[in-house]
Design a protein around this nucleic acid. Structure first.
Lengths: 207, 207
DNA sequence: TAAGTCATGTAATCGGTTACATGATTGC
DNA sequence: GCAATCATGTAACCGATTACATGACTTA
């Protein structure tokens, strides 16, 4: 017997909230608009530029691809290989494309950020300013490395008029620019924070 | 019988990766450095400014407080109330404070963002520029609202020399500034994106 | 011979959400 | 009478991670 319906809510199937939040399938569909990819290749993309705003491990991708195929949103095809394991590559179907285009225009709630580093910054008052400055510099270096990687990708678009980027590259270009601008904002904030921490280190030397 | 140890890894207890990632307990400890709070009050804080970089629902907070207390990192105290349900308030202990101060200086990996909105932007090439512009504007409005809320909080610090903020408010001030600067970066990006989309809408009118 | 890449998966677990329960008080 | 606020929890579920398994080929 199914669980008894709640006092104020009778439902059949998954909750609307869940249906509205399944970004993984759309991230995969989005990647497939650029062409045929295997699960393995999709996993690689999530480690690169796309990783700035979404990520998934291989173990999540393979079952999701199978689900998408069973729903007719993607079509799989086995590809025999020599010297490498055989693979299965997927193409987005017309239905998949329509499904994605619908979803793209639906409003998104503000992202619920979970930033471990900022949780630490929240308690910077507890530690010696000099130690905080060092921790900040460590994090800054990581962000600078990522910025350099994104700038290298951006160079591929260089010279082209941003307004005339081929349609297939419009989304990738816009999200890349978002990534670059957010990292630059972090660096500007880090400068400000360091100035404040230095002033405190000077006025209250380590005990 | 416990599961047989793997080929390359014998372990006892939770994995190191998990131990290094439990930010919720430290977010709670961080909130308690400002003074005694109940689980309910902590949940409220996660809905406000702290929510910019961490969040948790009440159902997660109550068990975590119990765990923190059993580990001696916080101390709970029952408070009888009239006209309201009784509550239990928690104070951070000396051990909890030391534990938090240690963690604050450990390096953090770059945050693995999951931004549903940017997943949509990735596929903006699929839709009419005019529809994309509208979707962008909707999201922009939400960000502007949040910015206004943060600016109101910032006003409380106004006039004070940022370098001379009381130590207890240093972390909160720095994270608030981070939130403000990230939203401003989003707005600057949204301007750029809108310009690009407008240029495309003009050159290729709706079919 | 050890580590790394290509390629796809299963099993156990965990962190977090949704739904629900309870119950007094205050405001519309 | 209905909804909202204050206050604390349990149970079921799900999305995601960790660990592990397999196996051929390449590079140091």
């Amino acid at each position: 017997m199914p669980p008894a319906p709640g006092k104020f809510c009778w439902r059949i199937g998954p909750t609307p909230a869940k249906l509205a939040e399944m970004s993984l399938r759309f991230a995969i569909l989005g990647l497939l608009t650029a062409g045929e990819l295997s699960g393995y290749e999709i996993a690689r993309r999530f480690e690169q530029s796309v990783g700035y705003f979404w990520h998934a491990r291989a173990q999540q991708i393979y079952p999701e691809l199978a689900r998408l195929e069973s729903e007719g949103l993607v079509a799989g095809r086995a590809v025999p290989q020599v010297g490498k394991p055989d693979k299965r590559v997927y193409t987005i179907t017309a239905r998949g494309l329509a499904h994605l285009a619908d979803w793209v225009l639906t409003p998104s709630p503000l992202t619920l950020t979970k930033d471990e580093f900022l949780v630490k910054v929240w308690s910077y008052g507890l530690v010696e300013p000099q130690r905080a400055i060092e921790a900040l510099a460590t994090h800054r270096r990581q962000q600078e490395e990522r910025l350099a990687a994104y700038r290298a990708i951006e160079a591929a678009f260089e010279g082209a008029d941003p307004a005339a980027v081929p349609t297939a590259f419009l989304g990738p270009y816009l999200t890349l620019r978002a990534g670059i601008q957010f990292i630059e904002a972090f660096l500007a904030w880090a400068d400000e924070a360091e100035r404040i921490l230095r002033a405190r280190a000077a006025s209250r030397p380590a005990p």
